[in-house]
Write a protein that binds this DNA or RNA. Structure first.
Lengths: 106, 106
DNA sequence: ACTTTTGTGGACGATATTTGTCCATACCGC
DNA sequence: GCGGTATGGACAAATATCGTCCACAAAAGT
């Protein structure tokens, strides 16, 4: 379960690593950015989705690209959904084709 | 906007084609499978997501594989989400990696 | 051993989103 | 016009998600 900077992980795990590297407790970070401690903990455990607003605050605090963070969150959601529905992996490939299809035909 | 059997399309469009090929009006199909006409129309226009139950009825009626239909619906949702959020296409590729990651690490 | 700090997680009301239904409308072919 | 068709708005009902509070257990610090 160890994680280096290049390995893939969920947004929550990423956030936790970030926080720990900064030596911050949940409570203090919570105070800094104005998000309830418990909620923050849940986000780190991927039990809650961060809102755009929260994402913005986090990006700002850790000096990260907001757009990039959003991508991580979204891909998390897709991944969880696939697992939850026990769907085939290539559902994602189909989705990709559909995006192109929709962009061209609408 | 013409569509042959091999081209990709959304679930709704697929459903509409199926219905028209069977020479059924919305009302009659609606009656057959017990789904409100307006709702069915919305599903065909991808304005509503079919529930599992509705999917099952449709699969049964048109003698299609339910699992396959579910995949089409799910990939639709992903595609629409990508477009809506103006997210990068490779968000889907990242999601793919995450699915593998999650399956291996949990 | 006592106190403080830390993360977890249940409970629950508040919000937001989605669904299903009804009805009015417009369109077309006859 | 009439009968059949698809569309889409409005809205209550059902679901899902969110944010907050609080209590708890485990670890760290003294």
């Amino acid at each position: 379960m160890a994680m280096n900077k290049n390995s893939i992980s969920t947004f929550g795990e990423r956030l936790r690593t970030l926080r720990e590297e900064s030596q911050l407790s949940l409570r203090t970070l919570s105070g800094e950015i104005g998000i309830d401690t418990s909620l923050l903990a849940k986000i780190e455990r991927n039990e809650r989705q961060p809102t755009k607003e929260q994402l913005k605050q986090l990006a700002k605090y850790f000096k990260l690209d907001e757009k990039q963070l959003a991508k991580e969150v979204l891909s998390d959601q897709f991944a969880y959904r696939i697992i939850e529905e026990e769907a085939d992996l290539d559902t994602l490939k189909v989705a990709e084709k559909k995006v192109e299809y929709l962009k061209n035909h609408k």
